[in-house]
């Protein structure tokens, strides 16, 4: 920065000012996100029930909650596979589908692009709670349109309850999450695509590179930043699915085979009054997310500092 005003005053201001500007935001983050994170860890080391919450008295039990969680077969056979498997599938699905849509949009004329992106906006705008109920209604066993159509086409003899089977249950959640999540990816990637210099594309074309190769060898490297951001954010959002599972039939705990870490933590806490145990589950979920995303974060910040 070129200094044109008296050096000393500006230098001091430049030292203090960023902290003044940051102060309100940091205060909010500290009180409402960081301190609660510390607390959830403290709770996880206690047998923390309703009584402890009301009285505020601690009830330390060391790592017993963690020991119980890690020893529970439910964690390894159901909860963890559901959480991780679903996150991987939904991130991959959302990013792949969103990118595909972006490529398609980039090749459309103005009119169709406006129409299609408006439709995408409509999908994006649907709140998770309403979206979930709409999908539940579409797949309703007795009166949902999905079963009706399948039976009308003769593909299905009797109505099937798609919510009771672990795989079909999560297939519906996946559909719901991709439907809600792909617009962000599509819009972001599209913006990036339009920024790729077309000379580069044309040069590649002249070399005789096919469109797939062209895409992966020229466009993707150009958009590394874009993909990094899109993948991080999708991972963050998709690991956190709660309402989309909790509100489905059987999703609130009666169908054990569809539990994920989030719902498990919630039902143990607020259903069983085992806030300590629930907190321990939440801590594990947080650690898992941190590990998964740490790699991406480093990539992004490394680019940043360059």
């Amino acid at each position: 920065m070129t200094e044109t005003l008296p050096r000393l005053g500006r230098a001091r201001a430049a030292l203090v000012r960023p902290w003044l500007l940051l102060a309100p935001a940091l205060a909010v983050l500290a009180v409402l996100l960081l301190w609660p994170l510390v607390r959830v860890f403290l709770f996880s080391l206690q047998d923390y029930g309703l009584r402890e919450i009301t009285t505020g008295e601690p009830n330390w039990i060391g790592t017993a909650n963690y020991a119980e969680i890690l020893a529970s077969p439910e964690l390894w056979t159901v909860v963890l596979p559901n959480t991780v498997g679903f996150a991987v599938l939904s991130v991959a699905g959302t990013v792949a589908f969103g990118t595909g849509v972006a490529v398609l949009l980039a090749s459309l004329g103005t009119f169709w692009r406006t129409v299609t992106s408006s439709a995408i906006m409509a999908a994006w705008a649907m709140p998770a709670v309403t979206g979930t109920y709409v999908w539940v209604w579409i797949f309703d066993a007795d009166r949902g349109v999905f079963n009706d159509v399948l039976m009308g086409l003769g593909l299905l003899d009797d109505p099937t309850n798609w919510f009771t089977n672990r795989w079909t249950f999560y297939a519906i959640v996946l559909l719901n999450v991709i439907h809600h999540g792909f617009p962000f990816v599509a819009v972001t990637v599209l913006a990036g695509l339009l920024g790729v210099p077309k000379e580069m594309l044309e040069a590649a074309e002249m070399d005789g590179a096919g469109s797939f190769r062209r895409f992966f060898s020229i466009v993707v490297p150009q958009l590394r930043q874009v993909f990094a951001v899109v993948i991080i954010l999708s991972t963050i959002w998709d690991f956190k699915v709660f309402a989309q599972v909790y509100l489905m039939p059987g999703g609130a705990g009666s169908n054990r085979s569809v539990l994920n870490l989030g719902v498990w933590s919630y039902v143990e806490s607020f259903g069983q009054n085992r806030y300590g145990f629930g907190s321990a589950i939440a801590v594990l979920l947080t650690l898992l997310l941190l590990v998964v995303t740490a790699v991406y974060v480093r990539t992004v910040l490394a680019e940043e500092e360059r």
């Binding site: 940051l22 940091l26 983050l29 009180v31 409402l32 996100l33 960081l34 301190w35 609660p36 994170l37 607390r39 959830v40 709770f43 919450i53 991080i232 954010l233 963050i236 690991f239 956190k240 709660f242 870490l261 989030g262 933590s265 919630y266 806490s269 806030y275 629930g278 907190s279 939440a282 801590v283 979920l285 947080t286 997310l289 941190l290 995303t293 974060v297 992004v300 910040l301 940043e304 500092e305």
Partner: peptide, 25 residues
């Protein structure tokens, strides 16, 4: 850089982890 890192990391915290302590808060 640390602050940027912090901003990115706090986005990763699952809401379920915050429900109990924020409720108390």
């Amino acid at each position: 850089t640390q602050i940027l890192m912090l901003v990115l990391i706090v986005q990763m915290v699952p809401l379920e982890a915050l429900v109990i302590p924020l409720f108390v808060q």
